[in-house]
């Protein structure tokens, strides 16, 4: 039963990926990409990786989907053609042969590795020392805290890079407004945005809180928050901040900064990013809350894009 389910799931994943890549209409391609992301989330659930399933559905399907739709709208407004004009048949065939060969080699490499959860018992043994029960949170914020710290800086760096693409005379302004243009549609979107934003806040706080013992965590919570912000912005319930607003800049760096400060404080006690015995859980939850808030704001602004000259509509 499980085997049949997983086989069908894998076939559906491959099928939706094919359609997302090859369908002529790009909006349909994005729709299939979102379906693909949700099926990937189901695959992670089948693997028992609920943390990853949450992240994949929220970020891989949700945020990336919004981003692609928004970019498509902006490109169409500029008069770009996104519908694919494929290469010649022979080139297509050649690419197909090369890529299938590559996939086969990769598959052979995969088959040569036996699936193995060798690190799970090691991590299980270490978990009681940090007082957190979700092993993924343990890895992210204690055993490989380095990676997560750098990752939070990567997000910040990506936002700075996106901002650096703004035209010179647009610099400190706000990104292009996300609000809908049609007044009646705006009305619908506004009431939904006003309803969803507080719910998103509560759900994000809940996800971060349960993340220490059960599936959830800072990234998942932060993404839910970003979704709430984006919906509120689309409904016009919330404006987008100017890039030089100091309070807003502090919310962007708060997460990485608190993380770094706690890491450096750990250095005073011995090692960088080492938590003192008995205080690990409190520190981890503190870091996660700040991180989730910063991630939410950063992701929402990454989607919104660079500052623009005047009030234009995507």
């Amino acid at each position: 039963m499980t085997a049949a389910f997983e086989l069908i799931l894998c076939l559906m994943i491959l099928g939706t990926a094919c359609v997302a890549l090859l369908v002529r209409d790009f909006l349909a391609a994005i729709a299939f990409f979102v379906v693909f992301g949700n099926l990937m989330g189901l695959a992670w659930l089948a693997l028992g990786a609920v943390n990853v399933a949450l992240a994949e559905i929220a970020i891989g399907a949700g945020v990336t989907g919004v981003l692609l739709i928004l970019t498509r709208g902006r490109l169409l407004a500029l008069g770009e053609q996104i519908d694919g004009n494929p290469l010649g048949h022979w080139l297509n065939l050649g690419a197909a042969v090369v890529c299938s060969a590559f996939a086969v080699v990769l598959g052979a490499a995969v088959l040569s590795i036996a699936p193995d959860d060798g690190l799970a018992p090691v991590i299980d043994r270490l978990m009681p020392r940090i007082g957190v029960e979700n092993p993924v949170t343990g890895v992210l914020l204690a055993f490989r805290a380095y990676d997560t710290l750098l990752e939070s800086f990567v997000l910040l760096g990506a936002l700075v890079a996106v901002w650096s693409l703004a035209p010179a005379d647009a610099w400190p302004r706000a990104p292009a407004a996300l609000r809908m243009t049609d007044p009646a549609a705006l009305n619908v979107a506004e009431s939904f945005g006003r309803l969803v934003l507080p719910i998103a806040l509560v759900v994000a706080a809940y996800l971060v809180w349960v993340g220490s013992d059960r599936p959830g965590g800072a990234f998942q919570g932060g993404t839910v928050l970003a979704g709430g912000f984006l919906l509120a912005a689309m409904g016009g319930a919330m404006g987008l901040p100017r890039s030089d607003d100091p309070a807003f800049r502090w919310t962007l760096v708060a997460g990485p900064l608190v993380f770094l400060a706690i890491g450096l404080a750990g250095m005073a006690l011995g090692r960088f990013l080492a938590y003192p015995e008995g205080m690990a859980k409190a520190l981890i939850v503190t870091i996660e809350y700040f991180l989730a808030f910063s991630i939410g704001v950063t992701l929402a602004l990454l989607v919104a894009g660079p500052p623009v000259r005047a009030e234009t509509v995507p």
Partner: peptide, 20 residues
């Protein structure tokens, strides 16, 4: 409850777009 509210909203928006 959240799912049906989201679906109701998106259905409204889509209906408006198709009418336009």
């Amino acid at each position: 409850l959240l799912a049906i509210m989201a679906a109701g909203t998106s259905a409204q928006l889509m209906a408006r777009v198709t009418r336009q």
